[in-house]
Design a protein around this nucleic acid. Structure first.
Lengths: 227, 227
DNA sequence: GACCCTTATCGTCAGGATGACGACAAAAGA
DNA sequence: TCTTTTGTCGTCATCCTGACGATAAGGGTC
């Protein structure tokens, strides 16, 4: 039995935390189908190219971020017949977590790509083309869940960060305030989550805060709890 | 820009608990490539067929289970160029959890499909064709992780079960013994995990045990802990 | 029936983690 | 100097867990 050929695309949910809110990178489509509508960045996987390589290539094209230190993980694959008017297209969705970029979306013409608050997009199911609303929903939920039991929040931070900056990540992604004192205790006492650098900064105002770097832990035990 | 067509397959990690151990359904391939080698059940997605529908169809073909009450979830998608000698094939892996079947693999010729202890397969990376060892690894790890924070263990059980049967599921999947008294407390006190039926059974020997049905909870809070 | 074996179920207790919140420290700015 | 802002350390009651003792209620054996 032979197979029926299909198109395979890689779509990206690229998240960052800017101005205290979780934001997603969207592009305005320049071509049909869904011309002029907002959509997730993405494109077809090339004939000889790994799925993750395709995702990483799209990520670089849209953000200018080429580092393999950017967190990128597969979320799910969407293949409902009819989801793409061009034919049978199966889309593998990836989730990318990037720090707040100093250069706003470098390497792209600013007109077609921009950061948008995630909940603003999530509350309007018609905002995005294709089934990208569902993909975004799954991507954001994945990110929210992983903050609980993995040290992934550090992927949103710069190399060096303070505990309250880290807390700000959690508050933005979860959309809920956290007690600074309890969070401080949890973050610093969970083995391998963050390592102190011995230096301080006053960039957040108030009393100088210790600077930290991400630790070697791959999961948090016990996990943090949402809400 | 047009797309390069690829084959899209759905492969299945079908797990059950039999004789106190976690077992996976494998088939012996009757055709090339990898003829006569063991592999996960699976096949190409049809031109007009949803991915999950394809997985459910394969599940029915291999096990005779057609019920939509069987737990089936997507795990990941594998698309490395060269993973299939027939050409560029992208495989969407699904995880199915089924109760210990009274009829051993109904609807299939018994020669080509059989239950095999999962850890026996996992310890030999060359046991399975294609990249199915990796897929199995990911599927089993998903199952192990989800038992912690979801009531999914009940998917391995019959409609009515005792607490110690449920505990047996955990012990088999995690490969670690659990304290019967603490597990009983946890299972019965976690809201919505199991609901008592008021009836008892002595099928496990010893003092009659309460029978339970799965409860309405979709996650366990707080989660159970492995080992 | 007396006894034993097996499994089910309840209870106790110490230790760890959490959430709520008080208190003080150390900077910037008025 | 005083106020404001943020960081950091403590305290305490509560909940959950893991370890484990004790009792309950069947079946089987003699």
């Amino acid at each position: 039995m032979d197979f029926e050929p299909m198109g395979v695309a890689a779509d990206l949910v690229i998240l960052t935390v800017r101005d205290g809110s979780l934001q997603v990178l969207l592009i305005r489509r320049g071509i049909e189908p869904h011309k002029d509508r907002w959509a997730l960045p993405g494109g077809f996987v090339r004939p000889v190219e790994d799925l993750e390589a395709a995702a990483r290539r799209e990520l670089a094209e849209e953000t200018g971020l080429v580092s393999d230190r950017i967190h990128l993980e597969q979320v799910a694959t969407y293949g409902e017949p009819g989801r793409d008017p061009r034919g049978r297209v199966v889309s593998v969705a990836y989730l990318a977590l990037v720090p707040d970029l100093p250069t706003p979306v470098a390497g792209t013409d600013a007109a077609s790509a921009s950061w948008v608050p995630a909940d603003e997009v999530l509350t309007d199911p018609e905002r995005l083309a294709f089934d990208h609303h569902r993909i975004l929903l799954d991507g954001v939920e994945r990110a929210r869940a992983k903050l609980e039991y993995s040290p992934l929040a550090t992927a949103f931070c710069a190399d060096e960060f303070t505990i309250s900056e880290l807390r700000g990540i959690y508050e933005a992604v979860w959309g809920t305030p956290l007690d600074p004192r309890n969070f401080h205790r949890k973050a610093t006492k969970t083995d391998g989550f963050v390592v102190p650098l011995g230096t301080t900064t006053t960039r957040d105002g108030g009393r100088p805060a210790q600077l930290f770097r991400r630790g070697p832990a791959t999961f948090l035990h016990p996990p943090l709890t949402r809400g």
